[in-house]
Amino acid sequence: MNLFPCTLVYVDVDASPGPNSTNRDPLSYVSQAICLNNSLRQVGMPTLTIMTNAPALVAQRLDSMKTEHRPALVTLNATIELPKNTPFYAAHFKLDLMDQMADSLPTDTMLLLLDADMVALLPLERNLIERCAEAGIGAFDISDQVFPPYGSEQVVADLEIVAGKRLRNPRWYGGEFLLATPAALRRLVPRARASYARYISESGRVKHHGDEAFISAALNALVDEGQGLIEVGAYQAVGRHWPGNNYRDMRWFRCCSFVHLPGGKALLEKEARFAEFAPDRFWRRMRVAHLRGRVRHAVKRIARLLSVERLATWSAYAVRSVKS
């Protein structure tokens, strides 16, 4: 089974930037995709394809690169319409991307849909690829990162609202990684279109926004109907890393095939300036960013504690003043 690595770069200068994006350059995601493609080349994986609604603009950003080092470009047939201030606006168009790929991929090729703000550190294990090919879909279950902070009751409610039905075992899937055969995509896309329609019509009730909401709902519904799905996070196919977060030991990420850095976009854009991806250099910079994040987290915790202490002191003083 062959792989078709692909990422979405949707360009719209009038749309709100992603919540995790600090670079206001609408083509900053192209730089991230360049870094991702360089890392794919470094581990011997196929060239990345950028699917975009603005191929001419993206091509200009790639002009300075050697032809053999450039990502491929494909024009996205965008059909989705939604308010441009929608959180994660651009990510919604992954549904159009999957729809387009379902009808264009050869039967012996799986779509490997990746977010641009990722790097490849190791090739995907052949055994995992074969298992995903047999099941039809490989997805990244991040329920343990989503349920606790938002509350399982709220997350499950959102999934079932968008799915339009009760789900047997609701799970939340990260949008940064999806591995799917063309046949599985042709089953997933119509279900995801229906979930998307409910997601839009019920936007006032749903607390979570973005492609993960309606794609997760569709995947859950398909699994309930017997669709095979391999949870790739258990195989360390992908890990999601936030600078300073202690969710995982840093050494765990070193063994992942892909690392997603939603809070490390600037790091990836700097790495894109190099003609070749150097894992050791990247890893050193990632560790530095992580340590800085740890310091920021510690400072914020101390500031919160001091605020609580000041409030308690002021309250005690107010009570004494009233009594006197």
Rank of each mutant, 00 (worst) to 15 (best):
residue 300 K to G: 03
residue 211 D to Y: 02
residue 209 H to Y: 05
residue 149 P to A: 13
residue 8 L to P: 01
residue 117 D to A: 08
residue 164 G to C: 10
residue 175 G to L: 08
residue 257 S to W: 06
residue 188 L to Q: 02
residue 49 T to C: 07
residue 198 R to L: 09
residue 69 H to P: 04
residue 318 A to N: 06
residue 180 A to E: 03
residue 317 Y to F: 12
residue 116 A to I: 07
residue 85 N to L: 13
residue 272 A to D: 00
residue 9 V to P: 00
residue 127 N to K: 11
residue 117 D to C: 08
residue 216 S to K: 07
residue 38 N to C: 10
residue 259 V to T: 12
residue 90 A to R: 00
residue 201 S to N: 07
residue 86 T to N: 08
residue 281 R to Q: 13
residue 159 L to Q: 07
residue 125 E to A: 14
residue 101 M to E: 01
residue 136 G to I: 12
residue 257 S to L: 09
residue 76 L to D: 00
residue 11 V to C: 06
residue 196 Y to N: 06
residue 4 F to A: 09
residue 38 N to W: 09
residue 260 H to W: 07
residue 193 R to L: 15
residue 120 A to V: 10
residue 193 R to Q: 13
residue 8 L to Y: 03
residue 204 G to Y: 08
residue 43 V to E: 04
residue 17 P to A: 15
residue 219 L to T: 08
residue 302 I to Y: 01
residue 134 E to P: 02
residue 126 R to V: 15
residue 320 R to S: 08
residue 55 P to T: 15
residue 163 A to V: 14
residue 217 A to S: 01
residue 189 V to W: 03
residue 74 V to R: 13
residue 9 V to R: 06
residue 309 E to R: 11
residue 198 R to N: 08
residue 81 E to D: 11
residue 149 P to V: 15
residue 139 A to R: 06
residue 34 I to Q: 06
residue 105 L to A: 09
residue 88 F to W: 08
residue 50 I to P: 00
residue 129 I to K: 05
residue 223 V to Y: 02
residue 199 Y to D: 01
residue 145 Q to L: 15
residue 2 N to T: 15
residue 202 E to G: 04
residue 185 L to W: 04
residue 79 T to W: 02
residue 152 S to D: 11
residue 271 E to I: 13
residue 87 P to N: 13
